[in-house]
Amino acid sequence: MTEHIPTTHELETPTAIQVVDLVRDYPRPRTSLFQPAPVVHALRGVSLEVKQGERFGIVGESGCGKSTLLRLIAALDRATSGHVIVEDTDITRLPERRLRSLRENLQLVFQDPMSSLDPRMRVRDIIAEPLVVQGHPASGERVRELLEAVGLSADAGDRYPHQFSGGQRQRISIARALAPRPRILIADEPVSALDVSVRAQVLNLISDLVDELDLTLVFVSHDLSVVKHVCDRVAVMNAGQIVETGYTGDVYAAPQHPYTQRLVSAIPTLQRALSGATTADLLAKGESA
C-alpha cells in the first residue's frame, strides 16, 4: 500500500485552521427541578492544526463530536471554551457581523443530498445564494461556469432539486460551496448517502477541484477507507476527543491507539475477505472495551 507522500506541508507552510483546546458542553433538558440540568460533553478539549493546501480527514463514529467540531470551525455554533483560529483570525467569539471574511473563505458541503438543498428554490438561485449574500452581482455567467465545473449542464439551473439524483444534488451542493471562491472547503460525510457507483464520481470531483483551485480540504467521515483515499493526514475522534493524528497511510497500516486499532480492524474490505477473513476477524483480537 503506497500513501500520498506529502511534499508541501513543511514547517513554513502557513496554517489554515488551528483549533486549541476546544470544549463544547450542551445542557440537556432538565429532568428534575432541584438538580442542575445534566450536561453532554460533546467536545472535551480538542486541538488540531490544518496546514494550507492540506487534505485533512476527521474520522469517528456517531456521537464522537465530529459534527460539533465542524460547526465550531465554521462558526455556526459557540464554543464553551478554547479557540478556533482560521487564517490568523480568532473566530471563536466574533459577532456575526465580523465573520464576513470567514463566510466567504470557508464553505461547507453536507451529507444528506435531500436536506442540503432548499426544495423550493431553483438550482441557479441555490448556487447564487452565497454570492447574493456577499453582495456580489450573481451573474448567470458565474452560475453556468460553476455548473460546468461540477459536471452539470447549463440548463440544470432552471430546475428544482427534486428533479436530480443523489449524486447530482451533491454536485449542486459543491457548486454552491465553490461560488464565493473559498480557500477552505469543509465536507461533512459528502458521499455517505450515495450509491457506490456514484460515490467514486463525487470523490474524484472533490479531489480534482481541490487540486485545481488550491483549496484546503477538511473531510469528515465515519469511513476510514474513504478518508484514507482522499486525505493526507487524519485525526481519529472518539468520545469528544482526538485519540490519534497522523498520516492516513500510517494510521491505517499501523494504528497506535486501541480505539483506532479496533476501528481499523472492524472495516470489512474485499481484499481481506477474499483472502479468507471472516466476520470473527473484524473483531479486533484482544478486544477489551
Binding site: 463566510r103 453536507f110 436536506s115 449574500v133
Partner: peptide
C-alpha cells in the same frame, strides 16, 4: 435543522432573509 439553512448561515445569510427565503416557503 436542515442542512440548507446551515449552508445559508455558513454563506453569511442573516436571520431575517433566512426566515423569508427558506423557512416561510417551506
Amino acid at each position: 435543522r436542515t442542512e440548507y439553512v446551515l449552508a445559508a448561515r455558513a454563506a453569511g445569510r442573516q436571520p431575517f432573509p433566512i426566515a423569508l427565503r427558506h423557512v416561510l416557503p417551506n
